[in-house]
């Protein structure tokens, strides 16, 4: 299983939740705290992200940067 991760700019995020519903792994959820604009922001709530980029594609605020395990690493690990 490919592993990946996301970096979410908590101050840009407006808590619209579109990434949360777009994530096939249900890796994302809304934070308990609020950001400087008063929004609860999206964050990783599970470590099962596959770096599929869905969340970043639907994010209206370009708040998400996505990283993914390179294929070569998986072969070695597999």
């Amino acid at each position: 299983m490919i592993k990946g991760t996301v970096l979410i700019d908590r101050d840009i995020c407006k808590g619209c939740e579109l990434c949360i519903v777009a994530c096939p792994q249900e890796s994302l959820g809304l934070s308990k705290q609020i950001n400087i604009n008063g929004y609860r922001f999206a964050e990783l709530i599970q470590d099962n992200c596959t770096g599929c980029v869905n969340c970043a594609l639907v994010c209206p605020d370009v708040a998400i940067t996505v990283y993914r395990q390179p294929k070569s690493a998986i072969k070695r690990a597999g």
């Binding site: 939740e17 970043a56 594609l57 209206p60 605020d61 370009v62 996505v66 390179p70």
Partner: peptide, 28 residues
């Protein structure tokens, strides 16, 4: 990062100004 490759980031042709649109708006 920790061996993970960058696969998606903001395009360089967008400025650094955060969008003013309402949360969830399709415009941006």
């Amino acid at each position: 990062i920790n061996g993970f490759e960058l696969v998606y980031k903001k395009p360089s042709t967008l400025t650094d100004t955060p969008f003013h649109y309402c949360p969830g708006c399709g415009h941006s």
